[in-house]
């Protein structure tokens, strides 16, 4: 099994974001970064498949700034074999441009499986995986929360709103990973040491034209502080009254 996993460096979200001067970017001062959660689950899925087959290679690919090497090293420490950084200081807002650059890198890789996260929690685009699948003409299943692969075929559970689809597909294929498929392993000390020696190739991405531009970034309106109505069921009548007369949701 030769498996590629596309991972993205994203800000850790437990902060109060600020908008940088110019109003079209988030202020990066003070932000911490990690691998996108969904991409960690994709890496974990790849490692488990390789371990089960007792053979193969897991290649991690990321488009990002030089600093993304840190996130790439984390996945190498988890057990991925080698990595490619498509170095770009700024990412296009057009998901198709990102997809084009990833597709170009994946194209001649002869991968049996290409794994993506369902969504990058910063862009929240949820489009890169299926776009790359189209560009490479690969069978594609999105939102995978359960996966079995055997004999050149796969069966996946695809999560929908309040339902699940059971989907069959032939290999090679491209999947996007949803929560629930697995829990990612922590890199071991041995893994961290080994990762330092693994190959991390740096290349230049080919985005092509971008049709999407960010014209403004803003913080959502703050919710006004609410009211505490009481400390027991004695507050219920007042709550019901407010829901009827003030919030008008009853």
């Amino acid at each position: 099994m030769k498996i590629a996993v596309c991972i993205k460096r994203v800000p850790v979200m437990e902060v109060k974001f600020a908008i940088a001067a110019g109003g079209t970017r988030v202020d990066e001062n003070g932000l911490k970064y990690d691998v996108n959660d969904f991409d960690l689950w994709a890496v974990e899925a790849a490692l488990q498949l390789k371990e089960k087959a007792n053979a193969g290679e897991v290649v991690v690919i990321s488009i990002g700034p030089d600093a993304a090497q840190e996130q790439i090293r984390k996945t190498l420490a988890m057990g991925a074999d080698r990595a490619v950084l498509l170095k770009a200081d700024a990412l296009p807002a057009d998901g198709l441009a990102v997809a084009r650059a990833l597709a170009a890198e994946l194209k001649d890789g002869a991968y049996d499986l290409v794994l993506f996260g369902r969504i990058a929690i910063d862009s929240s685009n949820q489009m890169t995986g299926p776009m790359v699948a189209e560009l490479l003409n690969l069978p594609c299943v999105t939102n995978v929360s359960k996966l079995e692969i055997a004999g050149g075929k796969g069966t996946a559970h695809r999560t929908l709103e309040g339902a699940t689809e059971v989907v069959e597909f032939p290999l090679p294929a491209l999947l996007t990973v949803d929560e629930g498929l697995n829990k990612e392993r922590l890199p071991s000390l041995k893994g961290i040491m080994a990762a330092k020696k693994k190959t991390l190739e740096v290349k230049v991405p080919q985005f092509g034209e971008s049709r999407v531009t960010i014209t403004k970034m803003q913080l959502p309106p703050e919710r006004a502080a609410g009211r505490i109505l009481g400390d027991s069921s004695a507050a219920v009548p007042e709550l019901v009254r407010l829901l009827q007369t003030e919030a008008k949701v009853l």
Partner: peptide, 20 residues
């Protein structure tokens, strides 16, 4: 098209323009 789309888990709202 000028469209709004929540990013960064809804903590930031991006306005995007879409041409073509």
């Amino acid at each position: 098209i000028v469209a709004q789309h929540p990013v960064n888990t809804g903590k930031v709202i991006a306005t995007l323009s879409l041409t073509g």
